[in-house]
């Protein structure tokens, strides 16, 4: 091997590529994230199965619980459809979170992330682009499900602002879950495995919760888990906000709620912050490592 002079041939070849100030790096991160959010959302227009999974499945859950099981579930002083719909929002976003894991695992498997890593983009935009796209999708689904809910008799009395706040809380929770699922997707690196890992985690969270039935109807040992796990907390916060303070007070009086709406909202925010604080760094570390 010959040793040549240490001239730097083309260090100046692309001046715009020089390391940039932090401010413009943030702007680039935003641009890269936006480009990848768009890319990920375009997949929904190209793969009809994704749309089916996203919209049809929650509608089926609404119909199932509203018309099949709903008749046997009695909630004191509240129509079951009113109790049900906030739970449906929780169920949608928990099930939907698997798509973050599946999407990232597919990208890892296809090799497109290798291409992204070789580009002068801000690398972490790959994760932000995925969780961001899932946030946008969840927003769309929540809006559609509100309309579906009204169509099947959902009549929330909390007022527009409280309903919007409830939706935002559910969406923030969904965003936090996305980061847990991002870690899962990066670790398993194929779509089937991502689903296999995610579903057993999410299924008990969804059903052993207050989403479809009151926690105080469950056996005592299960209540210990169901009353305090995050899906129950977030669903009851959304329920209290959407149905209004009078209904919430009734629910608390009959033991369906174990705290006030405010209590649930505060607990929800704590869960969301805690999940993000733990799983964003873990996912980022896994991404940098793999």
């Amino acid at each position: 091997m010959t040793t040549t002079a240490t001239g730097h041939v083309a260090a100046e070849a692309r001046p715009e590529a020089a390391e940039v100030a932090d401010g413009s790096k943030l702007a680039w991160a935003a641009r890269d994230t936006a480009a990848l959010v768009k890319r990920n959302l375009l997949h929904y227009t190209r793969v009809p199965q994704l749309l089916v999974f996203t919209f049809v499945q929650p509608i089926m859950f609404v119909l199932l619980f509203r018309y099949v099981f709903g008749g046997t579930i009695q909630i004191p002083n509240v129509a079951y459809v009113d109790y049900l719909m906030p739970g449906i929002f929780g169920q949608i976003v928990v099930f939907g979170a698997t798509s973050t894991a599946i999407g990232l695992a597919e990208d890892m498997g296809s090799g497109i992330i290798e291409r992204f890593r070789s580009l002068p983009m801000v690398r972490l935009s790959v994760l932000a682009g995925r969780t961001g796209a899932d946030f946008v999708r969840n927003t769309g689904v929540v809006v559609v499900m509100l309309i579906v809910g009204v169509a099947v008799g959902f009549r929330p009395k909390g007022g527009a602002i409280a309903i919007a706040a409830a939706c935002l809380l559910v969406l923030a929770f969904a965003f936090a879950l996305s980061w847990i699922m991002a870690l899962v997707g990066l670790k398993v690196a194929n779509a089937e495995a991502a689903q296999a890992v995610a579903f057993p985690m999410l299924f008990p969270l969804t059903f052993a919760s207050a989403a479809f039935v009151p926690v105080n109807s469950m056996p005592g040992w299960l209540q210990v888990f169901a009353a305090h796990q995050p899906v129950t907390v977030v669903v009851n916060a959304a329920r209290g906000l959407m149905l209004g303070p009078e209904v919430a007070a009734d629910l608390e009086r009959y033991g369906v709620f174990n705290t006030s709406t405010t209590g649930y909202v505060l607990q929800s925010v704590a869960w969301i912050v805690a999940i993000l604080a733990v799983f964003v760094p873990l996912a980022v570390r896994q991404f940098n490592r793999s």
Binding site: H8, A10, A11, E19, G111, E114, R115, S118, P120
Partner: peptide, 26 residues
């Protein structure tokens, strides 16, 4: 191009293209 890949990865990335068997497209 005289740039160490571990100390100047961003500048290296701006100067390279990668294609082939496993750098996939969407």
């Amino acid at each position: 191009l005289g740039l160490d890949v571990t100390t100047h990865p961003e500048r290296v990335r701006a100067s390279i293209g990668l294609a082939g068997q496993y750098a996939a497209v969407d």
